[in-house]
């Protein structure tokens, strides 16, 4: 295994984060904190409790998930798209490094950044809202699993995109709406029965529900189902990436 190669890609990607701290770290932390200020402290104090949890605390897992999905996709897609855009991808393609090692480098770095951000946001939210974490190991596990899964998804988008518009279109037009409609700000059980059924087709519901369970021990869907759906999505992404490298799709002509 080319561990030096994996480390080189990982370090390069992480170095980009440290070079752009304001954009990479400060910006998502500040924007998510604004949600806590508005929905958690200001409006949240006048909302009724959901499942016995204050509204401010209830939305924390969903908001962390919202940021985690967006950042994982954005970091991973940008990480592989930029070398394609600047032409430096030639070096990765001509190096003695396997597809798995390439993915480990890029996706590993993107997921690491998202996890660091997620933990930072959790720490920041404590300044505005009081919350507990009932199952801390499960919480970290969900955080890592989601970060890796959506970094894989981001990697696919980065390979697929042949322009900056395409790089943004899926996160903006699909992922963000799915996250907002995936139980970030409400419990699925608050919806009419028909919309409850429709909501179950939204994969983000399972991520938010499972993550919220790790905080408060309550979930919209069964924990096992949440975990299974996340794993299925991860496997689908891994399968697509395997196909990309096998065929050379948009990487090797």
């Amino acid at each position: 295994m080319n561990l030096h190669g994996v480390k080189a890609i990982y370090r390069f990607e992480m170095a980009r984060t440290w070079r752009t701290l304001l954009q990479s770290i400060a910006s998502p932390v500040i924007s998510t904190s604004l949600y806590f200020v508005v929905f958690g402290s200001a409006i949240g104090s006048r909302m009724v409790e959901i499942d016995g949890i204050s509204y401010g605390a209830f939305i924390i897992p969903g908001l962390v998930m919202l940021m985690l999905l967006n950042e994982s996709i954005s970091n991973a897609s940008f990480g592989i798209y930029m070398p394609k855009f600047t032409g430096t991808i030639y070096e990765v393609l001509s190096a003695p490094i396997s597809p798995l090692e390439i993915v480990l480098g890029y996706v590993g770095a993107a997921a690491s950044k998202s996890i660091i951000l997620g933990l930072l946001i959790l720490a920041t939210s404590r300044l505005f809202v009081d919350y507990q974490i009932a199952h801390p190991f499960a919480m970290v596990g969900f955080l890592a699993l989601t970060a890796v899964t959506f970094s894989l998804f981001g990697f696919i988008i980065g390979v697929w995109a042949d322009g900056f518009e395409k790089l943004q279109i899926i996160p903006m037009m699909i992922v963000t709406p799915l996250t907002f409609l995936g139980g970030t700000f409400y419990s699925v059980t608050m919806l009419p029965p028909f919309w409850q059924t429709v909501t179950l087709f939204n994969p983000v519901v399972y991520l938010v529900s499972g993550f919220r369970w790790s905080f408060y021990g309550v979930a919209d869907v069964h924990l096992g189902v949440s975990l299974a759906m996340t794993l299925v999505f991860m496997l689908v992404c891994a399968g697509l990436i395997t196909w990309i490298f096998k065929t050379g799709y948009r990487l090797r002509d």
Binding site: N2, H4, G5, K7, A8, I9, R11, F12, A15, R16, R19, T86, G87, T88, Y90, E91, V92, A95, P96, I97
Partner: peptide, 25 residues
């Protein structure tokens, strides 16, 4: 390669060190 494809924000030494690592050295 023919094209001058480089990472604009990297330093000279870092980018050469990156290349060495990428090739497993």
């Amino acid at each position: 390669p023919q094209e001058l494809s480089t990472d604009a924000f990297e330093t000279v030494r870092d980018t050469v060190t990156f290349s060495r690592g990428l090739f497993g050295k």
